[in-house]
Simulated assay, not measured.
Amino acid sequence: MGYGYQYNQYDSGTKYWTLYIPDSNKSLYENSSNAYGIDKFRTAVNTMKQKVIEITAAGGTAALSAIAAALAAAPATAGLSAILAILAALGVGITAGIL
């Protein structure tokens, strides 16, 4: 599996997240100390998904394959900055301001 997330929000308002990275996942309850990081991860995943849709719609299946290969080759511990660097090297226009 690639990068992704899933969450359940209970009646109490508590959110239980599962964050997916290549070859791993992490499940946790959202709280005040991790909410910011979870939101950044969620936003990054959504941005990557949107870029995939845009590249595919533009007929860029070769570019999409290159991006997928580069992300798959990245270690599961790669942070957001490493992922952004890979995307930037491949010409995907994602800026820190968006994330």
Results as ranks from 00 to 15, higher is better:
Ser65Arg: 10
Ser32Gly: 01
Tyr36Ser: 13
Ser24Lys: 13
Asn46Ser: 08
Thr14Ser: 10
Thr95Gln: 03
Ser24Thr: 14
Ile53Phe: 08
Tyr20Met: 12
Ala70Leu: 07
Glu30Leu: 09
Thr61Gln: 10
Ser65Val: 02
Gln50Leu: 12
Ala35Asp: 07
Glu30Val: 09
Tyr29Ile: 15
Leu80His: 07
Asp39Cys: 02
Thr61Glu: 12
Ile38Lys: 07
Ala58Lys: 13
Ser81Ala: 09
Thr47Asp: 08
Met48His: 04
Ser81Gly: 00
Leu80Asp: 03
Ile53Gly: 00
Gly91Met: 08
Lys49Ser: 11
Ala63Leu: 14
Lys26Trp: 05
Glu30Trp: 11
Pro22Thr: 06
Gln50Arg: 15
Ser12Glu: 05
Lys15Val: 00
Asp23Gly: 07
Ile67Val: 15
Ser27Ile: 05
Ile98Gly: 04
Ala66Gln: 14
Thr77Tyr: 00
Ser81Met: 05
Ala73Gly: 08
Gly97His: 01
Ile98Glu: 14
Ala74Thr: 09
Ala57Cys: 03
Glu30Gly: 03
Lys49Gln: 11
Val52His: 09
Met48Leu: 14
Ile94Arg: 06
Leu71Met: 09
Leu99Ser: 04
Tyr16Ile: 15
Ile53Ala: 06
Thr18Val: 13
Ala72Phe: 04
Gly79Val: 01
Thr43Ala: 10
Ala89Asn: 15
Thr77Pro: 00
Leu90Ala: 07
Ile67His: 03
Ile38Ser: 02
Thr43Gly: 01
Lys49Phe: 06
Tyr29Lys: 15
Leu28Gly: 07
Ala44Tyr: 00
Ile21Val: 12
Asn31Ile: 02
Gly60Ile: 09
Leu71Val: 03
Asn46Gly: 02
Lys49Ala: 10
Ala70Lys: 10
Met48Ser: 01
Lys51Ser: 12
Ser33His: 08
Asp39Thr: 11
Thr95Gly: 03
Leu19Val: 15
Ala57Gly: 03
Thr14Ala: 15
Ala89Phe: 00
Thr43Ile: 12
Ala78Val: 01
Thr18Gly: 03
Thr47Cys: 07
Leu84Asn: 05
Ile67Trp: 05
Ala72Trp: 02
Glu30Pro: 01
Thr61Tyr: 14
Ala76Trp: 04
Leu99Asp: 04
Ala70Trp: 10
Ala68Gly: 07
Leu28Met: 15
Thr61Ser: 06
Gly60Met: 09
Ser65Leu: 04
Ala69Cys: 04
Ala70Asp: 04
Gln50His: 11
Tyr29Gln: 15
Ala66Pro: 00
Ala66Trp: 01
Val45Gln: 06
Thr18Trp: 06
Gly79Asn: 06
Phe41Pro: 02
Lys51Leu: 12
Leu99Cys: 09
Leu80Tyr: 04
Ile55Lys: 02
Ser81Asn: 12
Ala72Met: 05
Leu64Asn: 07
Ser81Pro: 00
Ile53Pro: 00
